[in-house]
Design a protein around this nucleic acid. Structure first.
Lengths: 344, 344
DNA sequence: CTGAAAGCGCTAACAG
DNA sequence: CTGTTAGCGCTTTCAG
């Protein structure tokens, strides 16, 4: 039904090569006179000719499209602001370079190489992917470049580039701050469901190390399922921590809510620190102090790196880890005398 | 470099037709014996064969991809939650039907039909597009179905389907509420920059009608540019409105901020109502009362409609307008006696 | 049951 | 300068 290059050629009385050259040609050996070129263009517009990208894609094996994989895309409005900054950061270099961004409908579990290598995507940004050796091996075979966001780089060599933040150093800032305030019994909190999330693992490990460095060998690690309302029992426990570092903003927010409901005064009776430090932290009561990771910049870097890999730039891009900072708001304070009754 | 169907055929000692049939064939007249089929499959996997989607797309003229167009995608983290619910709502039916979602890098201004009709997209959801006759005419020629979100349907027949909300009725709810509280001098507020946004236009018109119906013929319409800090002068004006209906949540939030800074008590000295009523309204001080439009449901409906159009379902889908409701929080109250000193 | 062959629309050698 | 031609990888008639 739609007009093809061939019909334009026939109508204009020239060869299809000439039409191709005039309409999309990136010039090399084919040459067309000005006159003919104009004529062809005229015919093309009069015929309402529109180039078919599908044919071009096949021919050139290029699509100018990059894929983005992350779980729960269908639920971002409930999720942390993390995803928004991620989207913004990823999109911006892409759009500037006239690339499209495609959101994949599902985590390709069964046939990763099949979906990533079917030619439709020139590269992929994969968020928080679970670092198993198996999947790493698979991705090493991947015909298109992939960059992993928010997954700490493994020690092994790998063709995938990792963009993450200095989780451990970020947590250290939080621990240091609390420690200097006088806290000794500091806990780390995360949801059970998230146990495998790469960032979480790195943060928990960082926490344990920071505490160990200060001589605290078995600090509390709270692995909660909000559903079971673990807060109440914890609150009444004898050796309750005086400060909690939460693996994410949302966990921290949840903790704040529970504390408020239970009339536990934050920050005076309990200090809380979150992770990410987006606008969300301004909306909690009290405003939430948090470790900040520069999500937007990370995402942009990931995206730019991917683009350069697609271009096949010589200098092979290396994985990169962004530094974090601590942004203090109103959720931390020295431990109260109440809490000091039960020192760790 | 990658293995093609042809190489599999050669290696297996069969025709490419047989391979095609076995590996992707949707069965019709080509028939392959069980034995041969197994053999082919074995060879294919051993050769690491991966079908090329580009060739398939060209052949079948299908991509299972839907496009989404909206301005400022690169800035959603700053934008209203509207966009999040939109993304969620649009994505969910798509993903359930194994469609991909592609975000277009830019508003196709120059060559709309060219970008929409190049075969890569099977359909498009276009958000808040400016309703000009010219663009409507163009879209009527569009080879793929398009549904417009958050743009009120025009009176003229059109091939594009419109999904919007009952803006005027929503505003009427707000006016009615304020009126019943005793407000007579009610203003409508929007940013100058947004003057052309379809939803805004509809809401402003609705406001004017609602007020006219109550005998108020020239209510204040505040067209502000925050940059110029119009709040201060307005606040001190003699005939200042006692209540403001804002075209969006964000405008309302901004107004709330300014009021707080200026020690103007909301709701006692000024009532404020926003539009959308997302989680954002819970985070303002005071919590913002707002007209709610069911964005997620609207987006889902838009997406489902688009899918059915792509399928070519017979019953031609009609434009649809969702009802709004009023969600009261803490930003409205009867006009204060102070304000009554200067009645309208 | 099986394979040969004709394209989908476009690009790029290559020969004139 | 210009046109002919051979595909990109896959699907699908159609004849055996």
């Amino acid at each position: 039904m739609p007009i093809t290059i061939r019909e334009v050629a026939k109508e204009a009385g020239v060869s299809i090569a000439a039409v191709s050259k005039v309409l999309h040609g990136r010039g090399s050996n084919v040459r067309v006179s000005q006159e003919r070129a104009d004529h062809i263009r005229r015919i093309a517009t009069s015929l309402n000719y529109r180039p078919n990208a599908l044919a071009r894609n096949l021919r050139s094996s290029r699509t100018h499209t990059v894929g983005l994989i992350f779980e729960n895309f269908w639920n971002i409005s409930d999720g942390p602001l993390y995803y928004l900054h991620l989207l913004d950061g990823v999109a911006s270099p892409l759009f500037n370079n006239h690339y499209r961004l495609t959101i994949l409908p599902e985590m390709p579990q069964r046939d990763i190489l099949g979906t990533l290598g079917d030619g439709q995507l020139e590269g992929v940004i994969w968020c928080k992917f679970l670092e198993h050796e198996s999947i790493r091996n698979i991705l090493n075979e991947c015909p298109i470049p992939v960059v992993a966001m928010s997954t700490p780089a493994p020690h092994e060599e790998s063709r995938v580039v990792y963009v993450s933040c200095e989780n451990a150093a970020g947590i250290e800032l939080a621990v240091e701050h609390l420690w200097n305030l006088g806290h000794r019994n500091i806990a780390f909190l995360h949801e059970v469901q998230e146990s495998d999330t790469p960032d979480l693992v790195a943060r928990r490990d960082g926490f344990l190390q920071s505490m160990a460095r200060r001589g605290m060998v078995h600090p509390q690690v709270l692995s909660w399922e909000w559903h079971f309302e673990p807060f109440h029992d914890w609150r009444n426990s004898k050796d309750r921590a005086t400060a909690v570092i939460c693996w994410s903003e949302r966990s921290a927010g949840k903790l704040l809510e529970q504390a408020q409901q239970a009339n536990l005064d934050v920050p005076n009776e309990l200090s809380v620190i979150g992770f990410d430090s987006t606008q969300y932290c301004e909306t909690t009561t009290p405003r939430l102090s948090a470790v900040r990771q520069p999500i937007f910049e990370m995402a942009r870097h990931a995206s730019e790196t991917l683009l350069s890999m697609i271009r096949g730039d010589h200098r092979s891009p290396r994985s990169f880890s962004f530094p974090c900072s601590l942004e203090l708001r109103n959720s931390t304070a020295p431990p109260s005398s109440m809490s000091r009754i039960y020192p760790s």
